[in-house]
Amino acid sequence: MRAARALLLRELALALRSGGGAGLGLAFFLIVLLIAPLGIGPELGLLSRVAPGLIWIAALLACLLSLDRLFQADLEDGSLDVLALSPLPMEAVVALKALAHWLTTGLPLVVAAPVLALTLALPGPAYLPMVIGLLIGTPALSFIGAVGAALTVGIRRGGLLLSLLVLPLYIPTLIFGAQAAIRAGRGLDPATPLLLTGAITLFTLALAPFAAAAALRINLR
């Protein structure tokens, strides 16, 4: 537990310091959602119809931005060897790093989304399902991303490959997360898509640490 706490606190500290990239995702999210209405035009009906999808796509891309450094920075300075030989199992290392990524990238998006949704004229009843959807959906983005980051850890400029690997896997979360807000906006019950979003997240939380740890072990050989 002591080791897990030490690693989590280190990850959070590093993310918040210079070159950590914690603010990067949030800044990207802000910019995309603020310029989207400028491109689409001021027609409120159209904006409110595309708002849920836009918010989710922006969240997906914002999460991707800082993922390529998730393990690469540790590989480059030798820390990954130290972590591999530490009393923490590699799976726990992956889970803690992905959790730190979510806390510094995913969680700020959840907080910022309702404010930005105003500029997109999101229908009133859709706010709560959208925030809940983001809250339970974004952890899956960090954990699926961790698998991609582990696979591409040894590749220079692996960010593009990472996007190609990871974005298709984000699709279920995108569909169900956006559907929850869309259905609520039309006055329908958002419970089913929300439950499916949560199910995908639980599935990834259980599986991703093992897949990413296996990929890292091969990359350390």
Binding site: A13, R17, G19, D77
Partner: peptide, 11 residues
């Protein structure tokens, strides 16, 4: 301990 010192320069 390898060629790399496993140090985080920001800390």
């Amino acid at each position: 301990t390898g060629h790399l010192d496993a140090i985080k320069l920001q800390m």
